[in-house]
Design a binder for these strands. Sequence first.
DNA 1: GTGAAAGCGCTAACAC
DNA 2: GTGTTAGCGCTTTCAC
Lengths: 346, 346
Amino acid sequence: MTTDLTAHPPVTGPPTLDEVAVLAGVSRATVSRVVNESPKVSPEAREAVQAAIAQLRYVPNRMARSLVTRRTDTIALVLSEPNSQVFSDPFFASIVHGVSAALAETDLTLVLLTARDAREQQKIARYARQGHVDGVVLMSLHSEDLLPDILSDAGVPLVLCGRPYDGRSVAYVDADNQGGAQVATEHLIGLGRARVAVLTGPMDMIAGVDRHAGWLRATTDAGRRPDPALVAHGDFTEAGGEAAMARLLDQAPDLDAVFVASDPMAVGALRALRAAGRRVPEDVAVVGFDDADVARVCDPPLTTVAQPLDVMTTELVELLGRQIDGRAAPAETRTCPTRLVRRASA
Amino acid sequence: MTTDLTAHPPVTGPPTLDEVAVLAGVSRATVSRVVNESPKVSPEAREAVQAAIAQLRYVPNRMARSLVTRRTDTIALVLSEPNSQVFSDPFFASIVHGVSAALAETDLTLVLLTARDAREQQKIARYARQGHVDGVVLMSLHSEDLLPDILSDAGVPLVLCGRPYDGRSVAYVDADNQGGAQVATEHLIGLGRARVAVLTGPMDMIAGVDRHAGWLRATTDAGRRPDPALVAHGDFTEAGGEAAMARLLDQAPDLDAVFVASDPMAVGALRALRAAGRRVPEDVAVVGFDDADVARVCDPPLTTVAQPLDVMTTELVELLGRQIDGRAAPAETRTCPTRLVRRASA
DNA sequence: GTGAAAGCGCTAACAC
DNA sequence: GTGTTAGCGCTTTCAC
């Protein structure tokens, strides 16, 4: 044993594998096996090692491990969005929360990175290429974003949260935005409402496009001619929803129902309706698209299209995991079903 | 040179230092010096190396580097808070944004970690002890949090964002909450208002305590007896502010001014005031505590106490930096001044 | 100014 | 089962 002599003075710094090995009276390899839960270790050895680990409060050095295994057990959630206020978007908050929760079960850790401009995008690309992360979940909300290309060119395992705006070939997980919007609109029509409006998102975000498409589909499927006056675009924020709802009431005072394509907007829309003296749900039936379970606390509580955010985040990390160890198809995708949740008799 | 033979087939994986060295016709040591911007390199060698780096698209492997330098050039921002909705708190969003921006200037990267329960706190402690980060900025909002102790016991460089609830000895950066609240209240009193109420935060958060203390100080300094009916506690959220404002109007219908101790609460408070038929600012003067520049967009725009969030985040990373390389005093602290921003003639 | 050599702490064959 | 050996890619004395 050469280790005895060299490892004996653990004068400084955290304990190493060698020190544990010496204390336990075994070799480094055995300690490593115990740490990595290899079955090929005798019970006695395992116990001795575990005792030594506990005594020394040994924690493996991840850098050293990564250097040889080429894995970091870390994945990044990157938010590529110039507008920093997106941070306080409940949808985003829920995704972060959900991914973080999904990872809490595992040994992986989550790092959150933000890219507000091209320089930061490059920095993130470097970070990823440096081998700091095993993979990336990318929330890229707008159409002109370059990060998906940069990352996939660099060979970094990648899953987008949300369908890419163009039809690019890349793995992603998305909610069934169009389907959900269609169900919402059909519900409103089924209620006997004659003038069903839509308050959708900006058309440079795929969620805005898809949710509008769902309304359109349901409307035409019902044999109705889509009236442009029944369409307004918000920016997915509460204030934007309030303003857009006001416009909608102006354009089409005779509307008797509205599908609102995001929950912050639904909150704003309710406010605008109240301000205009319209009663909800008697006067106007509202269905919200509940990104983050917020519309539930509206007054009155809204019938909503719920996104299964927990499903989405689970799929996200599951798909990324398979991406990382090469078990996934090239550009595998998932579309998580949405469902209508009736909360009031809207 | 033994490297020529071994390094020649760069069949797989990203390029290494050796490959750059071979291509540039120098030794690994020289490449390392160029990468680390050592002055002890001849111009010719430097140029050759830089060319090789560019050609190979070489990126240093951080794991290998960390292994020897014992630095990771990464700091963690950890949010220790059971309630996941804090994520969408604009104050939190602004801090993340600001720290991330302050770091963007440097070579450091930010990882964001959340601890919702004891298990996750342990996981974070492990992560830090594993040498994954050089230091931690900790946002610990409640009084019973154990993470500050765990981390400082583990010898992890640490700076708290926000004064610790107890008087523990630890480095922190905080805004001058008490001073700001005092200035706000004095402003209201100076306006000639007779019944100046306060809508503060929960008393298990230091910010709630301090802001209440400032109101109290200004009130007594003005020779007034603090009336309990003029005090209400919200939970720093919009909905909480609305409810608390309603209570306040109930307890003290004659109030003619109110200091609201956070901007989401201010938004809610305005709503409650409007609902109660009170006019702002003629009828009731309102000063908000503007955690994140939100109160600015209120209608009417509020006179607010602005927290210099950019100053705070800058101080945060600066202090942590000095903490990391041992230049900081044991438990150095900073209190960033707040200032009154008049936006309306409230 | 530059190179050779010695590790950083760990895992992974490969023998025993 | 267990130990020995050989690196992972990099920085860093220490000679030259």
